[in-house]
Write a protein that binds this DNA or RNA. Structure first.
Lengths: 253, 253
DNA sequence: ATGTCTTTGTGAACGCGTGCACAAAGATGG
DNA sequence: CCATCTTTGTGCACGCGTTCACAAAGACAT
């Protein structure tokens, strides 16, 4: 979904399907909740319900990791938590940098989910000199000029881009050149990266537009005309997206 | 323009593949950029490159909307912008509410991409009484108690949930009960909704974990042992995700 | 008008992901 | 030790999405 890039053709002896990888964090979350409640074992049916997926799918997903279940009983929660964590690479420390400390970047820096699971915010980077030294989420913001040094000094391989769209590709290029090989992109732009670099995209605008499509379809199926009790001054023809094009995710300052 | 008479032929509007719908906003973005540069026409090859997809895929996607291209020439940019906008339902006004005005909620409220494309932030809602009346992004925050009234008075059908995980399902239930039929969920939880309600999920933690998986795989392929040029003194093993479980996306206050 | 050239639109093949349905495996009880 | 019961692991079929490859369609030059 996020990465429109095809992976390597062969050489995939470890072959865990991409769709399965995307669900592992979901299972892990559900398992962690069970673990905190000291639940010893869980059946595929129960866990699937908690994760919101089909139980057969869950079992097939786990089968790619190995046979970690016990027939007639289910799965050992603690063991499975460990196995999935290990498979996802969460048993090690992943330093990440966030570039673009605007509203969104600051929110990400404060995001608790980052600090957990082995992800550590190693640095915050912004192009605005006025931001330099200013602490956000307890971490001082550093200037873009030092990007390469920051990446290398901290051994960062995962970068988060929360800059305006116009700056994203340039930032991306610098990150990649400095050694980053995985990028989480919040800017509304298509990033082009060399082979071997993974990009995942989170695009709020696109998600909303997809919802609008389905919403419109639902509204059109029920009643053809008046739906909401709203004026809805729709008189635009094409000058709708003129003034903004695609506004950056967040202004850097 | 307006040559296409297909209002809802029931033969084709029904069958737009979900994968295609998800790409339409991408095409729209690229087309809007071209439009602003006053480019009159564009070939599938050029547009596909701009959107980061395969040209055959793009042509097939457009074929679901109808035959809007001219062989030997390409696609009329303005016309296509209009057609896609209409198909996505962006020619009308979509009032949305954002529930949970923490760091992330505030960032979303300030997000330029919301205001554009027909999406209008109709209200900000938070459970914290101290937030009530306080303006965020120029919009006064309202208390959760008034959620139902706000939804109905504004004819809102799209809701954005940016609350902590623990509150998400409850907020979701209230939104749905009040008439919301599309939800964009930023809380790290599986939401259960009745049929007819669409939910899209944005989960930062999951995206990072997917990246970590690939990152680990890349590191393992190259060198079995020492990976980055980093000391990496933190060598934890399993007591990694204990303290947090799954921290809420953003604290509400 | 005719031929050439460009680009669309799509038929067909392929691969991936999903879900069913069931046999195998192990627990449990007599 | 055997019977029964529960739950896993997976073979198989199906449908969706992607990609190739090419004929049809139209622009453009002569």
């Amino acid at each position: 979904m996020a990465t429109g890039r095809t992976h390597r053709p062969a050489t995939r002896s470890r072959g865990i399907p991409e769709a399965t990888v995307a669900r592992l964090p979901l299972y892990l979350r559900a398992l962690t909740a069970l673990s905190e409640r000291s639940v010893p074992t869980v059946s595929s049916e129960e866990l699937a319900a908690a994760a919101g997926v089909n139980s057969a799918k869950l079992r097939k997903d786990f089968s790619y990791l190995g046979s970690y279940g016990t027939r007639g009983v289910g799965y050992d929660v603690e063991y499975l938590v460990y196995q999935i964590s290990r498979e996802l690479g969460l048993t090690q420390d992943w330093p990440v940098v966030i570039v673009g400390i605007g509203n969104l970047g600051a929110a990400l820096a404060n995001y608790g989910g980052f600090a957990s699971r082995g992800f550590r915010v190693a640095a915050l980077i912004d192009a605005d000199p006025a931001m330099a030294g200013k602490p956000v989420a307890g971490i001082p913001v550093q200037h873009t000029d030092d990007l390469e040094k920051i990446i290398k000094d901290n051994g960062v391989s995962i970068g988060v881009i929360a800059t305006p769209a116009g700056a994203a590709q340039q930032v991306c290029d610098r990150l990649v050149a400095a050694g980053v090989t995985s990028i989480l992109n919040f800017a509304p732009t298509v990033l082009s990266v060399p082979d071997g670099v993974d990009v995942r995209k989170v695009d709020l605008s696109i998600e909303l537009q997809i919802l609008a499509f389905h919403e419109q379809r639902k509204a059109g199926e029920e009643t053809a005309a008046g739906d909401a009790a709203l004026p809805a001054a729709t008189r635009d023809d094409s000058a709708d997206q003129g003034p903004d094009g695609d506004v950056p995710a967040v202004m850097p300052a």
